[in-house]
């Protein structure tokens, strides 16, 4: 097993485990922290795939901004006690089974996918570098890029409309 493979398995197991912990943790704060760990392991995967830009953006955007907001809100609401009474156990079991079935179905379906034999390039390849992505983003994808500013404007207006106390 090469070092890449070791890293891959390590990060995958970490990601899956922490993702599971996100779902199963009773305490929302713990959930947030596990989710951050998940994001980190996904960022690790990006580095493994030499998608440096996305790795860092993932950390900055998800771990650094989004999850802080989550944590912030949870702390503000003082949700540290687990406020979910175990009333609907059956719903939980049903949800779990549904998700599991979905997983099974998808895995079973995609196991024989046409690209099964293809290989992902790890450790090398230039496309994940910021120079390449930047050029793409500001030439081919400049229109969507500008359009996404509308999204942000509306989110901004929305945050004002919704968030401001009156």
């Amino acid at each position: 097993m090469s070092i890449t493979q070791i890293l891959f398995w390590f990060l995958s197991v970490l990601a899956l485990f922490s993702a599971l912990m996100v779902v199963t943790s009773k305490n929302p704060v713990h959930s947030v922290l596990w989710l951050i760990l998940t994001f980190f392991s996904i960022s690790g995967h990006y580095i493994l795939l030499n998608a440096q830009f996305l790795a860092v953006v993932n950390v900055i955007v998800y771990a650094g901004a989004i999850m802080v907001l989550f944590l912030f809100v949870i702390m503000l609401m003082n949700l540290n006690k687990s406020v979910e009474p175990q009333k609907n156990r059956w719903i939980k079991i049903a949800g779990g089974i549904a998700g599991g079935c979905l997983l099974l179905v998808l895995v079973a379906a995609l196991r024989n996918s046409e690209i099964r034999q293809q290989v992902v390039q790890v450790k090398e390849g230039e496309i994940g570098l910021i120079r390449n992505l930047g050029r793409e983003l500001f030439t081919t994808y400049v229109v969507p890029f500008e359009i996404s500013s509308i999204l942000f404007l509306s989110a901004m207006v929305g945050a004002v409309v919704i968030g401001k106390k009156d």
């Binding site: 994808y141 359009i147 999204l151 509306s154 207006v157 919704i162």
Partner: peptide, 20 residues
């Protein structure tokens, strides 16, 4: 990509308007 962006640009303001 445009479809995705478009749908989000529709959705996000709608969430806000719904909760206005």
């Amino acid at each position: 990509l445009i479809l995705f962006l478009g749908i989000e640009i529709i959705s996000i303001p709608l969430y806000i308007l719904t909760g206005a």
